[in-house]
Every structure is written in structure tokens, then in C-alpha cells.
């Protein structure tokens, strides 16, 4: 009983309104708007730099979005940590490789889920950057 009451999700309107206030405070204090996808460009550049530093330095897109840690990079790291802390504190942290809905439709295979997730991630990020999102 305790577990189910502790795991009850927050009202999405209240959580969404608080996220809106957080955004307004962020814009006020640091002038930063929320985003995440640019961070994946910077991180990809950082990974590529380890094998081909000169090539990365010459690429126009990595000149535009330099491979370095910035406000948004730390924002994304914060999301991981905040989610981890909140899930552990509320008893909803759960190590799971295949989401329930995916398993119900496509079976419990980890390899299939990871393959689809990897492909989906690559396609989604390419689209996000093309749309400048």
C-alpha cells in the first residue's frame, strides 16, 4: 500500500506550471531557455575529437556548436541526476531494459528494443537538428 501511494504521479498541470515558472526564473536569472538537442551535437563533437581532433576543428557545424560543456550540457546532466534522485526518493526507480508497452507489442527481446531505440535516436536527432529544435 505504501509503495503505491508513494508512487502516485504528480498532477501534470501542476508539474507543467512549475516547469513553466522554472523556465521563467531561468530566463530571468541566466537568460537561458530550455533545450537539449544541441548538447548531443557538442557531446558527439567531443567524442569525435578524441580520434580526429583536426577534422572536428575544421567542420562548419562544430564551429557553430563548439564541442564544449556549456549551460545546456549541465542542464541535461541535471535532468539525469534529478530524475534519479526523484525516482529513488519516491520508490519508482526501476532498472528496465524493455518498456512494458514495447514488450507487449514486440516481445521482451532486449536486442530488438535496443536496436530500435538506437535507430530511432539517430533518426530523431538528425531531424531535431535539421529543424533547429
Amino acid at each position: 500500500m505504501t509503495a503505491s501511494t508513494r508512487a502516485k504521479p504528480w498532477n501534470p498541470y501542476i508539474a507543467g506550471a512549475l516547469a513553466g515558472l522554472l523556465l521563467v526564473l531561468s530566463v530571468w536569472i541566466t537568460g537561458k531557455y530550455f533545450g537539449a538537442s544541441t548538447t548531443f551535437v557538442r557531446a558527439a563533437g567531443m567524442v569525435e575529437q578524441t580520434v580526429a581532433a583536426e577534422r572536428v576543428a575544421a567542420m562548419p557545424y562544430f564551429k557553430k556548436e563548439a564541442p564544449k560543456v556549456d549551460w545546456q550540457w549541465m542542464f541535461v546532466v541535471g535532468i539525469v541526476l534529478g530524475s534519479c534522485a526523484a525516482s529513488v526518493a519516491s520508490g519508482t526507480f526501476r532498472v528496465q531494459a524493455v518498456p512494458d508497452r514495447f514488450a507487449a507489442r514486440f516481445g521482451p527481446g532486449t536486442g530488438k528494443r535496443f536496436g530500435v531505440a538506437f535507430l530511432g535516436g539517430a533518426v530523431a536527432m538528425f531531424g531535431a537538428r535539421l529543424a533547429d529544435g
Binding site: 504521479p9 504528480w10 498532477n11 501534470p12 508539474a15 507543467g16 512549475l18 516547469a19 522554472l22 531561468s26 536569472i29 541566466t30 537561458k32 530550455f34 560543456v69 556549456d70 549551460w71 545546456q72 550540457w73 549541465m74 542542464f75 541535461v76 546532466v77 541535471g78 535532468i79 539525469v80 541526476l81 534529478g82 530524475s83 534519479c84 534522485a85 526523484a86 525516482s87 519516491s90 519508482t92
Partner: peptide, 22 residues
């Protein structure tokens, strides 16, 4: 600026996780 980014992300992550939108 990096510390503000981290703190903002932690708070946003708590809201995302507790409302199950992730």
C-alpha cells in the same frame, strides 16, 4: 553559469520524473 544549468536541470528532472512524462 554551469552550476545554474545543473541546478535547473535537477529541478526540471524531478518534475519530469514525478509526473511520469519521461
Amino acid at each position: 553559469e554551469l552550476i545554474f544549468g545543473l541546478i535547473t536541470g535537477v529541478l526540471f528532472g524531478i518534475l519530469l520524473q514525478r509526473s511520469e512524462v519521461i
